Deep mutational scan, measured.
Amino acid sequence: AEIMKKTDFDKVASEYTKIGTISTTGEMSPLDAREDLIKKADEKGADVVVLTSGQTENKIHGTADIYKKK
């Protein structure tokens, strides 16, 4: 799966169907969080990951919607 910015995804959204939401939390780098989200998306058969939230304090927390091409 590839990560797309919401603004970029909005241009092609009609080509995809939302298949779920994924999240990651833990003591990790932003890059590790990104890789974890991609891994989870791949496991669910998603083609595209669109980040919906991200937070960093002591731990990273990120959520994303996942989509499959129609």
Rank of each mutant, 00 (worst) to 15 (best):
G20Q: 01
K59C: 14
S14K: 10
D8A: 05
T7M: 10
H61M: 11
P30D: 14
E15F: 13
K68F: 05
M28Y: 05
D10E: 12
T25W: 11
G62H: 15
V48Q: 01
V12R: 04
D47S: 06
S53N: 10
V12C: 06
D8Y: 05
E15I: 06
K40V: 06
S23Y: 13
V49M: 09
S53M: 13
V50C: 02
K59R: 09
T24R: 02
M28H: 06
A13R: 13
G45M: 05
K68L: 08
I38N: 02
V12P: 00
K69P: 02
A41C: 02
Y16D: 00
S14H: 15
G26L: 12
H61E: 11
R34V: 12
K18M: 09
T24W: 14
Y67F: 07
K59A: 14
T24H: 05
T25D: 14
I66L: 11
E27R: 09
T17R: 09
E43I: 08
V12G: 01
Q55L: 12
G62C: 15
K5T: 15
G45L: 04
D10F: 06
S23A: 10
D8W: 03
D47E: 06
K11L: 11
T21A: 07
P30A: 14
D32L: 12
G20P: 01
D8K: 04
Y67A: 01
G20I: 00
K70C: 09
L31E: 15
M4Q: 02
G20W: 02
G26T: 09
S14P: 05
K69S: 04
Y16W: 01
I3P: 02
G62K: 11
A1C: 13
P30N: 12
N58Y: 11
K68C: 06
A41K: 00
E35K: 14
L51T: 04
A13T: 04
K44C: 15
D65E: 09
T52D: 09
N58Q: 11
A64V: 07
S23G: 05
F9I: 00
K39W: 06
I38K: 08
D8H: 06
I66A: 04
K40R: 09
A1H: 02
A13W: 06
I38D: 00
E35A: 14
D42V: 15
K5H: 13
A1L: 07
G26I: 14
K59D: 14
M28Q: 07
K5Y: 14
D32W: 06
A33I: 09
S14D: 10
T63P: 07
K40T: 09
Q55M: 12
A13E: 07
A1T: 06
I3H: 04
E43F: 07
I22T: 02
E2H: 14
K6C: 07
T24N: 06
K6D: 09
I3G: 00
V12A: 01
T56R: 10
G45Y: 05
A13D: 03
N58H: 12
G20V: 02
S53T: 13
K70G: 06
K70R: 09
K18A: 06
I19K: 00
F9V: 01
G45R: 05
A13K: 12
A46C: 03
E43P: 01
V12S: 02
T25V: 15
E2T: 15
E43R: 08
N58A: 11
K39H: 07
D10T: 07
K18R: 08
I60E: 10
K39E: 04
K39V: 05
L31G: 10
K69D: 03
I60V: 14
K68M: 06
M4E: 02
A1W: 04
N58F: 11
P30H: 06
K40L: 09
E43G: 05
A1P: 13
E2M: 15
L31S: 14
P30G: 11
S14I: 07
A33E: 07
V48Y: 03
D65T: 08
R34C: 14
T63D: 08
S29C: 11
E2C: 15
G20H: 00
M4S: 02
A64M: 09
S29K: 08
T17W: 12
A46N: 00
D8M: 04
K11M: 09
Y67Q: 01
Y67K: 01
Y16A: 01
T63G: 04
V50H: 03
H61S: 13
I19Q: 00
K68E: 04
L51R: 03
I60P: 11
L37T: 02
S29Q: 07
K11Q: 07
S53A: 10
K18L: 13
Q55E: 14
V48R: 03
T7E: 15
G54P: 15
T56L: 14
K6M: 07
S14F: 10
G20R: 00
A46M: 01
V48C: 05
E57P: 13
K70T: 10
V12D: 03
K6F: 07
A1S: 04
K59F: 15
L37I: 05
K5V: 12
K6N: 06
D10P: 02
V49S: 00
S53Y: 15
V49I: 14
D36I: 10
S29P: 07
I38Q: 05
A46V: 02
I22G: 00
T56Y: 11
M4K: 03
D10Y: 06
I19S: 02
T21R: 07
V48S: 00
S29T: 09
D42K: 13
R34T: 08
T7A: 15
G54V: 13
K39F: 05
K68I: 12
T24F: 11
G45P: 00
I3V: 07
E35S: 13
L51M: 12
A33F: 11
A1N: 01
S29A: 08
D10V: 07
A64I: 04
T25E: 13
D32Y: 06
T52E: 08
R34Q: 09
A33N: 05
D42I: 15
V49W: 01
I66K: 01
I66N: 00
V48M: 05
E15H: 12
K70S: 07
E27D: 09
R34L: 14
G26C: 14
K5P: 09
T52R: 14
T7F: 10
K69R: 09
